[in-house]
Design a protein around this nucleic acid. Structure first.
Lengths: 260, 260
DNA sequence: TCATAAATGATTGACCTCGATCATATCAGA
DNA sequence: TCTGATATGATCGAGGTCAATCATTTATGA
């Protein structure tokens, strides 16, 4: 029996809401909850999946409450080799008792995962990156401080005046920062608010490590983050000759190569 | 071929890590990733499930990346009737353009879900409750501000000096607060840090609404939150006579009954 | 009003998942 | 060293899931 269009839409919204609330539901429960046959439930799932509003699994479906966060995982999975090497190098700098800042971006995610594997004692982690919290929330013996701020839609980062103000009140031993591009004139990032926060963090940090893989070489972005003189340490899978070829000359000891 | 115990343990840790990273994995990918047969993968899954470290689904498994957050959903699902009524009453107070504070607790979660359904324009939502972000992050046209602070293990709340300081810098029209218990002497909550933050919020808020369902009546908690004179509005499924019977007398207009 | 398009539920067959069972290999403890 | 316990992979049957198809009903729009 055909049913009006708006009813279909309403049921599908309800389905996504349900999945958003419950995380995962098997087909059988979906049918019961929506009061439709299995066939219709499947049809709804296909439709919503093709709109990328949910994720189907064999036997059920997942809500994209991940949508905010999994995009991260997705991106992370792309160039894991480089990111992993950078993360291992970064983690090797972290010593017991340190206060470490992790900023936005997938590299920070990789570093957090690496720290989860080899966790120094009495660590304090400061971040504005919500995607890390799932990873960091369960670290035993570590303290996690989140800088406040405004939640960016579609991102999982907190930014704005609140974040900058909160950052200036922190003590940081070691800051891991990232950028969207690097050229001979320095580093580039996409948003002014991100850069403002990064500047505030750099001012408070004993050591600022920028983590950029080779895909960033030669690229620019709308906003200039700073000249190379402001970079204390660069962690990258690039070599000094490669950097020099791009017109980038670093002070000796600035480049930290990635770990295997 | 039998394999040493520590190898089994290592593989199972890796499995939980994988699920934590990827959210969901079907059996087939797990086998490939771990290099074991389907049978062994299933055995690992059963073992991990009985330890409650993962959630199995038909055809795969979910990491407890929910662990931090789903416990919320779990708790929320318990007394939804009362919570839903409270949430609807609370949401009815929210008008376009308001700055609304939501604090920790499952009631705030219910309110956020209600706001998602009926979203006033140009809303600003201020919270220290991370469990809400999945819900609030995708609200179109709303602005979400997160108070910074220290991440509480096993909780999804930010607390501490940072949070209090951030709260005193906010303007709030309407604050929805909760408590663990209510008696004739006032409201009670579990932790001093939570209460400190609530006091800071109440000081900045034009109107403070406490949301407590009937299960809280007569219960106390380690810390005293405040006397009834500090309560601007009480949203509850309790009636005035029921409250009076427990020795609680409210100024007229203080009690807002739940909505059906 | 009528014809068309669309939504639904039932059915079917192919494929998949799951747990149980069994033989085998190897770890762990006596 | 020897023996029992245990991890593993293969196999199998029961039952579940899925997409496709079909008949039926009803919204939609001309």
């Amino acid at each position: 029996m055909r049913v009006p269009r708006h009813v279909v839409e309403a049921r599908r919204s309800r389905l996504t809401e349900l999945l958003l609330e419950r995380g995962y539901l098997p087909i059988s429960e979906l049918c019961e909850e929506l009061g439709v046959s299995e066939a219709t439930a499947r049809r709804d799932l296909s439709a919503l999946e093709s709109e990328e509003r949910i994720t189907r699994t064999y036997g059920g479906a997942l809500g994209e409450f991940n949508a905010t966060f999994t995009s991260f995982r997705e991106r992370l999975r792309h160039d894991t080799e480089a990111k992993g090497g950078i993360a291992r190098a970064a983690a090797s700098l972290v010593k017991p008792g340190m206060k470490v800042y992790l900023d936005a971006g997938t590299t920070a995610f990789a570093i957090a995962q690496e720290l989860r594997r080899h966790l120094p004692e009495r660590l304090t982690i400061i971040t504005n990156n919500l995607a890390l919290l799932e990873t960091l929330g369960t670290l035993p013996g570590a303290k996690t401080i989140v800088l406040g701020g405004q939640l960016l839609e579609r991102q999982s980062v907190l930014l704005g005046n609140e974040a900058v103000k909160a950052a200036t009140a922190q003590e940081i031993d070691l800051a891991f920062l990232s950028a969207q591009g690097m050229t001979d004139t320095g580093l580039w990032n996409s948003q002014r608010d991100i850069i403002r926060l990064q500047h505030a963090v750099m001012k408070r940090a004993g050591r600022s490590c920028f983590c950029l893989d080779r895909s960033k070489l030669g690229r620019t972005a709308p906003e200039h983050l700073g000249a190379w003189t402001r970079v204390g340490t660069l962690i990258s899978d690039l070599s000094l000759p490669e950097l020099r070829q791009a017109g980038i000359t670093l002070k000796p000891g600035t480049l930290l190569p990635t770990h295997p």
